[in-house]
Amino acid sequence: MNDYSAVLIASVVALGLVFALLFVSRLLAPRYRTEAKASIYECGMVPMGQNWSQIRARYYLFAILFVIFDVETVFLYPWAVMFKQVGTLALVEMVIFIAILLFGLVYAWRKGVLQWK
């Protein structure tokens, strides 16, 4: 339990450091706000149109594939630690499991999901 309390302390210290750096910068740096400075940067032009725009569904498909395989890796970690003790049986079981998942990947591949256009 003590080990994870160190992680908690570290996250507090990290956030504190960023806060301290920004605080020092606030004390030292000049602050003259003008309208031009407060506008967003678009290569020197006046910003045009809607900025929070819609995103292509292409990215969404990659996210779905990611979730499928990422859940699988959660199963793989305990398997890897116990692998040597369980032996060949563990290998056979995991080959079957991964083969099913790879079949899904090949299906997505053939369907052109992985083709970025």
Partner: peptide, 9 residues
């Protein structure tokens, strides 16, 4: 540290 910190309006 001494550079102005800008946040877009």
């Amino acid at each position: 540290l001494v550079k102005e910190d800008l946040i877009p309006a």
